[in-house]
Amino acid sequence: MTSISPSVDGPAVTGGRVVVTGGAGFLGSHLCTELLARGAEVVCLDSFLTGSPANVAHLMDHRSFRVLRCDVTDFVHVPGPVDLVLHFASPASPVDYLQLPIETLKVGSIGTGHALGLAREKEARFVLASTSEVYGDPLVHPQREDYWGNVNPVGPRGVYDEAKRYGEALTTAYRSTHGVDAAIVRIFNTYGPRMRPYDGRAIPTFIRQALAGEPVTVAGDGSQTRSVCYVDDLVRGILALADSGHPGPMNIGNPEELSVLQIARDVVDATASGVPIVHIERPVDDPRVRRPDTALAQAVLGWSPKVAWREGLTRTIEWFARELSVPA
């Protein structure tokens, strides 16, 4: 197995070879960057359906980094030893999975099976990127890992929710049947540099609109809540879980709860744009509340988020301003 330090805050990966599926996506690219910084050799697999080569362009000259164009729903073959498989391939934003419903279901089912097969073949640790969406529109708040969720399987969001729920079941089956050293991380709302400005999620949408001097559009009355975790904190938590040997499921996210309207107001303030906030129709099955219970991560990993919302928002706005070529 990968040589991984027991310290959450120190170098989490000091050697070994790591495969990251979806490695050119928002989260995947941050994982690749951090793994290389911690001394790992990284193989990035991505079909570039929703990921972008630009996200890993800064890594291309790194001697320990290799990127392969690969659709994990077709076949996965990686020559040589592999110590850790991080399965992050999937459309993740509502815009993506509503436009790519079949692809989303296939990568969550067939793709997860292929990634698990790779881990089994290589006798590697496996971590599935699951999601808070497995809790649906929750009737329990905050959400603990032992909550089964309230999901509409035939609603518009069902393609993503059920793909991840199936992926969790398959990961559990590979662990119990084949002895794969597998874990499940349930990722809550995350934000930071390299998000796509038109991916449909609230924070990049609000920032893009505010920087362009456009009204910020809030779904419904904005009273629905989210917990938002800065990407650096999330990556720390994921790699700590990979280190720990714990099977999960484990929530990784920020337990601080904000209303969507408050997030919009904070974006307007932080951009000093002075743009108005307008309300639009709320999407079908949009969760009313979302906040993780992170007691398990704190107890097992010693993990908690460190980057405050306002600090992370400032960093994210500065990155978007550079990418969109507008004053911050």
Rank of each mutant, 00 (worst) to 15 (best):
S227K: 04
R208W: 08
S132F: 14
D161F: 08
V180W: 02
S109V: 13
L118N: 06
Y160N: 02
A119K: 05
R144V: 04
P193D: 08
A202T: 04
A210W: 04
F126H: 05
A173Y: 05
E162P: 00
A210G: 09
Y191F: 15
E133D: 14
S132N: 15
G158A: 13
G200D: 06
P197T: 02
T172L: 10
R125N: 00
A219S: 13
G117Y: 08
W148L: 14
E123R: 15
V159S: 03
T225G: 08
D146K: 00
F188T: 01
D232W: 00
A115R: 01
V159T: 12
A163M: 12
G136Y: 11
V185N: 07
D137H: 09
Q224K: 14
I187H: 05
V159Q: 02
Y191E: 02
G213I: 09
P153A: 05
R201D: 06
T217S: 14
A212N: 12
R208N: 10
V107A: 14
S227W: 06
T225K: 09
T225N: 11
G179Q: 11
R157H: 10
R125H: 04
D232Q: 11
C229G: 02
T112S: 10
S176E: 15
Y174K: 11
K164H: 08
E162V: 15
G108Y: 04
V231G: 06
K164L: 03
R236C: 10
V228M: 15
S223P: 01
V151T: 13
V231Y: 05
D181N: 12
S176Y: 14
S176D: 15
D146Y: 01
R194D: 02
T104C: 08
L128S: 01
Y191W: 13
L116K: 04
V218K: 06
L211P: 01
R175Q: 11
